[in-house]
Design a protein around this nucleic acid. Structure first.
Lengths: 240, 240
DNA sequence: CGCTGGATTGACTCGGATCAAGTCGAGTGG
DNA sequence: CCACTCGACTTGATCCGAGTCAATCCAGCG
């Protein structure tokens, strides 16, 4: 059975059989969760590390005035922070978008894995660095890109990440995110997002319809996004 | 002699004498760097982990069109990513604001410390989680707060972080950041930042003059920022 | 004493928010 | 099978926060 988490970690470091066995064991039990369910809420005490096996989720914060900001999208193979258990409480919530299957790894077990399997530890740390790079890209987008550039950039990010885990065909990808969720990801209103999407459609860059994203012109999209894919770190340091 | 890095780590976990000795040794040699000097540039291959002993610096990205986005401010006691060496190249640069003193810890040495000193490792991981929380707060600010709220929020962050390392008196703090640097931190223009600062001054919330920040009304400031200081994690998990 | 880089202010423009109607599609129940 | 409903998407009209452009102002300094 496919385990996208292990597949993803393999992209970051060489895993030997023992590593894979250990990871397979740790993520064997997956529980199912329904759509729009909070896996954890802001203020909660962190539980075990968890890993998305199937389905999408997102990290978010709610401001006192009720506004929501999405902080990251989690797709199959993504995990929360490795050391999440060190903090007393969550500074943000994580909610599923779709039905999902989630594996949880208890804190002690995670520490054991990091200790026993240096290859896995390396892959997990790289994965975390990549996630941080994505956050920096989001800050940059929010601060210094126009709304059309922001949309193009997010779509590029989602497309490339999905492609890395085999969720795309040539130009096409299932994106189960509503426009209001996308708007809350990009720091704009749903109304304005809708207009930007229309413009991108008319410019023959991308089309989103019923949860299905089509990249009409990848080059144009990447250009208008000012997208630098190196931040998703295809170029990893080779040496040990 | 004061070592703000060790002081800061002590806030996150209990360090025994061996831990302190190890850290003292590792950060003993500090080199001096002049103001406005790039410690590392986007695209560079990461070198050793480094730690700010004195002075301020900032992480930043430059977009193709020349716009700059500041991603984080580093003050004494702050460090770059622990595992920075795992990546092939930097996705952002780090530049000093003022003259600074920097300690560098080679990769092998850092691995040794993480292995030999679990207390230090824990403190460093918590410190990194706090930095990530700060990034999430920035994304939230950029996406969903008005410009005045953003300014108030950043000033609250800087004040509290500075207070944690003993750089403030009651209401007062040296902030060596120019208005254009602040504007690039907050995703706005220097002109508009200037107007917002004026408004905050007239509202008797804060005053900035010649690099000196005065918090006139801390309560008002925190209120208008919607500032939740728990994200700087004063409440850490107690248990081992 | 004039030069220079930051800070400040004013006049004007524009991107994106807000407010207000619809429209469309997938269920749901009669 | 069709009317009803509800949530998500679209579109238009208007408003306002923030950007842009362009002058100063001011302190520090060679």
């Amino acid at each position: 059975m496919a385990n996208r988490y292990i597949d993803k970690l393999k992209r970051f470091a060489t895993l030997n059989e023992a590593d894979v066995a250990e990871l397979t064991r740790a993520t064997a039990r997956g529980r199912s969760v329904k759509a729009r369910h909070d896996l954890i809420r802001e203020g909660d005490r962190p539980g075990p590390v968890f890993v998305m096996l199937e389905g999408w989720a997102f990290r978010y914060k709610i401001l006192p005035n009720g506004l929501r900001q999405v902080l990251a999208h989690l797709m199959p193979g993504d995990a929360c922070d490795l050391h999440i258990g060190l903090l007393a409480e969550m500074d943000h919530g994580i909610q599923t978008v779709t039905k999902a299957r989630i594996a949880t790894i208890e804190r002690g077990e995670m520490e054991g894995i990091l200790e026993r399997c240096p290859g896995v530890a390396k892959a997990m740390y790289i994965s975390q660095l990549v996630d941080e790079g994505t956050m920096r890209a989001w800050i940059t987008s929010m601060g210094r890109r126009s709304s059309a550039e922001r949309v193009a950039h997010l779509m590029s990010e989602l497309y490339l990440r999905a492609r890395n885990i085999g969720l795309t065909d040539e130009t096409h990808l299932e994106v189960p995110l509503s426009q209001s969720l996308l708007a809350d990801s990009l720091g704009m209103t749903a109304v304005h997002l809708n207009r930007v999407l229309k413009k991108l459609r008319l410019d023959d860059a991308i089309t989103i319809q019923r949860g299905s994203l089509t990249i009409t012109d990848p080059v144009k999209l990447a250009q208008m996004a000012g997208f630098d894919e190196s931040y998703l770190h295809r170029r990893l340091r080779q040496a040990a």
